[in-house]
Design a protein around this nucleic acid. Structure first.
Lengths: 225, 225
DNA sequence: GATTAAATTAAACGCATGTTTAAAATGTGT
DNA sequence: ACACATTTTAAACATGCGTTTAATTTAATC
């Protein structure tokens, strides 16, 4: 599924053979991910990425083709883990006799936390990438998600309808988008919020705490009669 | 409160004397507002604004000093109407004996709709401007709002606490930010959503409908025990 | 070890941005 | 009508961006 320029044979990927230094591709991908999650896609320049990754400016276009393609590659690395995991969790809910909204949203927790396998703070990074993907107008990302994982999202919608049979299609439509808004915003402004919270309430806050609060909130909003 | 360059005497503002054409300042302000609300602050260039306003490129810097100052002037025009109106509505709730969350959020409705006095679609524009102000990193705008209208926002927080005495400070903190997120997102993605909704449900959607749905949703999320 | 393919590099390209400059035009007060 | 302040204008400036080019270095293949 990788969109990388293949250049005939693509044997020596992933890790440089003799050196203990990761390959140029991986260095770009890792640095881009870190900076994208920190500042957003548009705010991060290729010069910034290549400088911090200690690779040549032109290598991004050589290996990925364009900045857009690099963005997609960064996001795809998480999507390819998250979406199948979510899919499995949602399937587990199909047999549930008395399905609740909270159950549906809690099905997100394991897939989200599994992203910490990709990176130490993978959950946080993924959600922030997602946030920027929606708040900046990265139409190509939305289209990619829709076409690659549209079936999973439809499954989600069906389960929410089952948990809230009294809600009209129209109401569900709006509320689901509000849910998305609260989620995205929480992540994009997340770091600032965490710092404020830390100062104000004098206790440690982490991404897990935020997600717990968020799930309760969005379930409450969505279930409102 | 205007940050405009005064240049000694500032007599001939607002409207050009002999011509029936609005002054350069007003033309810039109106066009900038329209484009900012449509595309966001960063996505809108001064060249785009001045071209559509039919004024010279340099006049923005002459009259406003910088793009940042122009952004602030555009937002301030709405804030200066909205915040006092909200303040008054909130004061009206001080004497309420059994205050509910829904009441607090419904206090936003009149101030919001009053913005249609500034422009035909003032409510929509204001909310979208607000959305971009938060989703783009316009730190100076956040600081301006906080310093100019911080007292009103604190009043709001106090009322919400009164309506939800069982909610801890910490929970209120998070939920209020989720509320903000849902609101902002609804507006920034608003036009796209309205069009989707129109196509999907085959009926007319306007900003008022969105706000009605939103208020119910956020009240539900915030009240969740 | 020669030959080919892949990867890296420094430099430039083309374009767009916000801002500044200095001259010209317009308006104002006496 | 003059002198002065204000506004408008066209042009250039400085900077940053993504991308492309062409030469060089490195790696793989026979």
């Amino acid at each position: 599924m990788s969109n990388l320029k293949s250049h005939a044979s693509d044997a020596p990927s992933s890790v440089r053979a003799s050196s203990n230094k990761p390959s140029t591709q991986k260095r770009i991908l890792d640095t881009a991910e870190r900076l994208f999650a920190k500042e957003g896609f548009e705010q991060t320049s290729l010069r910034q990425i290549t400088q911090e990754a200690d690779v040549n400016l032109a290598s991004v276009n050589y290996h990925f083709g364009s900045k857009k393609a690099l963005i997609q590659a960064v996001v795809a690395r998480y999507m390819d883990v998250f979406m199948p995991a979510l899919d499995e969790e949602l399937r587990g809910l199909d047999d549930e006799s008395a399905l609740t909204t909270l159950q549906v949203f809690e099905a997100f927790k394991l897939p989200l936390f599994s992203l910490n396998g990709i990176h130490k703070r993978g959950t946080e990074r993924f959600l922030r990438l997602l946030g920027f993907a929606y708040s900046e107008t990265q139409g190509h990302l939305r289209r990619y998600t829709q076409s690659a994982f549209g079936n999973v999202l439809q499954h989600l919608l069906a389960l929410l309808h089952r948990a809230n049979p009294k809600l009209s299609d129209e109401e569900m439509f709006w509320r689901l988008h509000f849910v998305l808004g609260a989620t995205v915003f929480a992540q994009v402004s997340g770091q600032a919020l965490i710092e404020i919270a830390r100062a104000e309430f004098n206790y440690e806050v982490n991404i897990k705490t935020v997600i717990e609060h968020l799930i309760v909130f969005i379930a409450g909003g969505l279930e409102r009669p």
